[in-house]
């Protein structure tokens, strides 16, 4: 009943076909992983539009380098690293703020959303917690997102971020303490 969840239009803007091997492979990878990648970037950036940009850039980068990849099985890891790096860059530039996350609130019974909606259940809670996450340093925030969204182990997070596992543990601990304190203050 629904539309194709991920229409694929592998065309050039001039209408010429791209490299078929890379196109097919990267398009398949995109179809399978774009949703989770955009969600990952959206959680970190708080801006859907920026998240889509970051993911498109990551897959475009993969497409450009496809012929030079030494191990194509690691393509997804490459994309994820690229997405996380781009998120960090975007946050450093200060152009993407979590303030875009959601939600102006008007009078009783009125909720205005700035994006597509999945659920308004516990919306207050979600906005409050995400606002607390926004106040964390980007590394701490990233650790929490990788742990709680991608269910990564400390070792996997360390490998992904290029840091030690002890650094991951301490970053996560500090992040949770800080979030707990912020939530307590805002209660």
């Amino acid at each position: 009943m629904g539309s194709d969840p991920m229409p694929v239009a592998v065309v050039s803007s001039s209408g010429e076909p791209a490299d078929c091997g890379a196109t097919a492979a990267v398009t398949a990878l995109y179809r399978a992983n774009a949703l989770s990648m955009i969600r990952l970037a959206h959680v970190i950036l708080g801006d859907r539009s920026a998240a889509e940009d970051v993911v498109q850039d990551a897959f475009s980068g993969l497409y450009r380098r496809w012929g030079r990849l030494s191990d194509q099985d690691k393509a997804l890891a490459y994309v994820r690293t690229s997405v996380l790096n781009s998120c960090r860059t975007a946050l450093r530039r200060g152009k993407r703020e979590l303030s875009g996350l959601v939600a102006d609130r008007g009078g009783t019974g009125f909720v205005q959303f700035t994006g597509r909606i999945l659920s308004v259940v516990d919306e207050d809670e979600r906005v409050t917690v995400m606002a607390a996450l926004r106040r964390l340093p980007s590394r701490q925030r990233e650790v929490l997102v990788l742990r709680f969204y991608l269910d990564m182990s400390d070792q996997q997070i360390a490998d992904q971020m290029g840091i030690g596992t002890s650094t991951v543990r301490s970053a996560a601990h500090r992040a949770l303490v800080a979030v707990g304190r912020i939530l307590e203050e805002s209660a």
């Binding site: 959206h42 959680v43 708080g46 597509r116 999945l118 995400m130 997102v145």
Partner: peptide, 9 residues
């Protein structure tokens, strides 16, 4: 909160 935010997409 993280998962609810992700599910918005």
């Amino acid at each position: 909160a993280i998962n609810a935010t992700a599910q918005q997409i």
